[in-house]
Amino acid sequence: MFTLSTQLRCWTFASADELEELRRETREAFIKKQEDSIQDSSIFLSYEEECQLRRYYEGKLKRFCQRFQPQMPNYVLGTAMAYFKRIYLHNSIMEPTPEDFMYTCVYLACKVEEFNLTMQQFISNLDEDQSREKSRILAKELRVMEMVHYHLTVHNPYRALEGLLIDVKTRCTDIAETEKLRPFFDQFFNKSVLTDACLLFPPSQIALAAMITSATNLGLNAALDRLVGWLSE
């Protein structure tokens, strides 16, 4: 249950300001560790540059998962992205090599979410030297687990959304277009996975936001009004 999970206890924050403060503290701690060996502080990335670099690798992780063969379920992407975001809350992106940890996060997420495939199947999706990447991924797997404090279970919003969709189908039998919501769900999650939503909100709230946004876009205002009514009862 999410309410008893390490995700809520350790990886869900009160506000975006709290996240920013933690990331700034992480950056300052990294720079302080380098003071004895590096005198020129201008070589370090600014906080804004760190954010840009982190977002770049998050986008790269997302694209890798979306073009993966065999097709990767959305919840594997969600879990991999959660690992990656958690790593760079307590580590500066100037320190661990983001590229290596990015692929290792995806590989570990495949295992945890039981998306079963061989290492050869996994590395066949890489454009880089496959033998080298295989060694790097295996070498860093335990390190990734350590960096996320061995909190490997991630509660994604996808299952919660399926429950909401079943409710709409059951209670709104007069609405035949509910399955047409799915493309809008995908659009919503494709955008939200690149934000800090998984670090700020419970999966049920993200799922509800996806449902409301999708129903609004499709013009299913009747279903939307009834859904909000049920939840407020």
Rank of each mutant, 00 (worst) to 15 (best):
L8N: 04
L224T: 07
I137L: 01
L208G: 01
L126M: 15
Q34E: 13
Q120S: 12
Q205V: 15
A82Q: 08
L161M: 14
H155T: 06
Q187A: 09
D100E: 07
M119W: 02
M72E: 04
Q66N: 10
I43N: 03
G219S: 06
V144K: 03
D225Y: 09
H90Y: 14
A207P: 06
T12I: 09
F84A: 04
D127I: 09
F201D: 12
F64N: 06
I212Y: 10
R27D: 07
S124V: 01
H151K: 00
T3L: 15
H155S: 04
D225G: 00
P70Y: 02
E49A: 14
L161F: 14
F185A: 02
K60M: 10
L61P: 04
L208M: 04
L199P: 03
L200N: 03
F64W: 11
L53S: 09
A80R: 02
R143E: 15
R86N: 13
E114T: 05
F189E: 06
L4Y: 05
F201N: 11
R159S: 14
L218I: 15
V154P: 00
E20D: 13
A16D: 08
M145N: 08
D36L: 13
V228C: 15
E49F: 04
L224G: 00
Q121L: 04
F185G: 00
L200M: 04
Q7V: 11
R24A: 15
M145A: 11
F30M: 10
E28V: 06
P70E: 03
K32S: 14
A160W: 09
E18L: 06
L45E: 02
P73Q: 06
H149Q: 07
L77G: 07
L194R: 06
E233N: 11
N190Q: 04
R159M: 13
I212A: 09
G163K: 09
F184P: 00
I175H: 07
I43V: 15
P202R: 05
E35H: 11
L126C: 13
M102Y: 02
L45V: 01
A29P: 01
F189D: 04
A80F: 08
F13Q: 05
M145D: 11
L53K: 14
V76G: 03
A160M: 07
N116S: 12
P203C: 05
C51Y: 00
T97F: 06
I166Y: 13
S192K: 13
N74H: 06
F13V: 12
E113P: 01
D174V: 11
Q130S: 08
T216D: 12
R54F: 13
P70V: 00
A209Y: 05
T216N: 08
E28I: 05
V154M: 01
F122V: 03
L224C: 10
L231N: 07
Y88F: 15
D100Y: 05
S42K: 12
I137Q: 00
F122W: 03
R159Y: 14
M81C: 12
A210E: 08
R23A: 12
M81Y: 07
M1W: 06
Y88M: 07
T170S: 11
D17M: 04
T170L: 09
V228G: 08
M102A: 09
F101V: 05
E35R: 14
L220C: 14
E20V: 09
S135W: 00
L224F: 01
L53A: 08
R159K: 13
L231C: 06
L161W: 12
L161I: 12
C198G: 02
E25T: 13
Q34L: 10
F201S: 10
Y103N: 03
T118I: 01
P98Q: 05
Q39C: 07
F2K: 02
